[in-house]
Amino acid sequence: MKDNLKLSSKLKSWLELYNLLIKTSVRSRMQYRFNFLLGSVLAALIQISEFLMVAIVLYKFGAIQGWSMYEMGYLFSVMTLSKTLYRTFADEVHHLEKYLVEGDLDQILTRPVPVLLAIMPRNFRIMLGEVLQGGFILGWSLHGLWRSGQIDWMSIAFTLFIIVTGAVILFSIGLATATIGFWTTRIGELQTFTEDAARTAGQYPLTLYPKWMSSMLLIVIPVGFVNYVPALYIIRGELGVWVLAAVAVVAMICLGASLRFWRFGITKYQSTGS
C-alpha cells in the first residue's frame, strides 16, 4: 500500500516534469520563431506530397489482391497516425545518434530521473501536417467502409485503440534501433531500414509481399501488428476479437523488451573524449 502511494506520487512528479520539459522545449524553439514556423510549414508540405502519392496509387490500382481502396486507405492512415503519435511524444528517440556522437547523454545521466523521460520531450511538436493528412484519409476510408457495411461504432473505438498500440510498437522499434547506437554510435542507416523502410512497407497489405518478407514484417520488425493484423478483424471481420488482445500483448512485449535492451545499452555508453 505504501509502495503504491510512493509509486503514484513518483509517477505524478514524473508527469509534471515531462509536462514542464515539453513547455521548455517549445519555448526554446520559439526563440527562433521563423525557423520554427518554416519547419512546420515544410513538414506539412512534405505530408501533402506524400498524400498525393498515395492518392495516385489508390486511384490507379483501386483494389489490390482483394483489398479495396478504402481498406488500403485504412491501413495507410492507421500507420501514419501511429507514427505521428510516437513522434509527437518521443521524437528524440529517433535522434539519439546526436546524443551519442556529441556526448550529450553525460549530463542527463547525472540526473535522478529516467534517461528517456529527460530525452523524449526535447523536441516535442504538434505534427499538424501528419495529423491532418492521416485524419483525412482515415475519415475518408471509414466513411467508405461504413457505407459498404463493413464497420460499426465499435470499429471506430477499436481503431483508436490500435493507433495507440501501434504507436507503442513503433516506439519500441525506434528505441531498440537507437539502442544499437551504444555499440555502433552511428545508427542513421539502420534507422532507414528498421524504421522508415519497414514502416513504408507496412502501409500496404502484407499479402502483397513474398512470404519471407511478410514474416519478417510480423516477427523481426513487427510493423504488421500496427495496422495489418488488427485490420483483418476490425474492417474485414476475419479471425476474431481476440486479435485485438493479441495486438496489445505484442505491443507490451515489444515495449518491455526494448526498454530492457535500452537499459542494457546504457551500460555500454562510451561518452566522448574531452
Partner: peptide, 30 residues
C-alpha cells in the same frame, strides 16, 4: 546521483536558449 553535484567546465548543464532562472525551475523539479 541525487546526492551529487556535477559540473563539466567544457559543457553547460543549463538550458541554452532560456533565461538563467528557468533552468533552476527545471532542475528543482528534477
Amino acid at each position: 546521483v541525487r546526492n551529487l553535484g556535477v559540473v563539466f567546465g567544457q559543457r553547460s548543464q543549463l538550458w541554452w536558449d532560456l533565461p538563467v532562472k528557468d533552468s533552476y525551475d527545471i532542475l528543482a523539479k528534477m
